[in-house]
Design a protein around this nucleic acid. Structure first.
Lengths: 114, 114
DNA sequence: TCCATAGTTCTGCGATATTCGAAATGAGCA
DNA sequence: TGCTCATTTCGAATATCGCAGAACTATGGA
């Protein structure tokens, strides 16, 4: 991932409303969640949320598909992973001080299927 | 890490100049790097860099210490790790789709002492 | 076709962010 | 004390962001 895209991704997450929306979508998994449902849970006006979802979408972190009258948003896991990788990838170039705790975090992660 | 601090951290990184400075500091390791040296390598005016370093510092991602006439900046690895953890911590709540690739990244990381 | 529902785009303005010249501060040295 | 280098703080111009009211588009019935 190059710098510009990383900055776009970080910028899109650097906003309380968008970060909350993104985390809800992360929890929603690959099924995603309708824009209206997100707006209800976050208690924000639909137009404001729509703008913020567009920003996240433009940064490549989420995507949308239409399902009837609703528009379903979901996380683009590949892009999310790429962004985290971008933040992590230099950690070992200089020292292992950062790398070791990160490994610990990843390994402590107790997915159902691990 | 709570939401506000995470947003502050992400905001501080959501800027090309600051992200480049941060990555240089990550590479510099715990020895850190002088503000002037950073300004030279990044080719930005000292006062602009100083402002941006203050923003990263206020977000808790870096810290500074004076060494003679220079001020040495270095990454606060603990805070950096906490921020990454904040972004990762919900990944398993919903599904393992995100978690698995992250584990792979962390494990692929080939620190000298691993 | 007409209506209701679900989202998006347009628009304007107040708030915030970014930048850098210039001045101020701090440290070392003679 | 006087001088210089390194960095920060101030100030003001400029650009960008964030928000929500209003208008618009799309879909699915009746």
């Amino acid at each position: 991932m190059e710098m510009k895209l990383a900055v776009a991704g970080l910028s899109s997450l650097a906003h309380e409303g968008r970060l909350k929306a993104f985390r809800l979508l992360v929890r929603a998994g690959s099924h995603g969640m309708a824009a209206g449902e997100l707006a209800r849970q976050l208690d924000v006006p639909p137009n404001t949320l729509s703008t913020n979802l567009a920003i996240l979408s433009h940064a490549g972190l989420i995507e949308s598909r239409r399902a009837g009258k609703s528009v379903i948003y979901s996380v683009r896991y590949g892009q999310m992973t790429a962004l985290l990788q971008f933040l992590m990838e230099d950690c070992c170039a200089g020292s292992s001080e950062i790398c070791a705790p990160l490994k610990a975090i990843a390994l402590a992660c107790d997915c159902a299927d691990n």
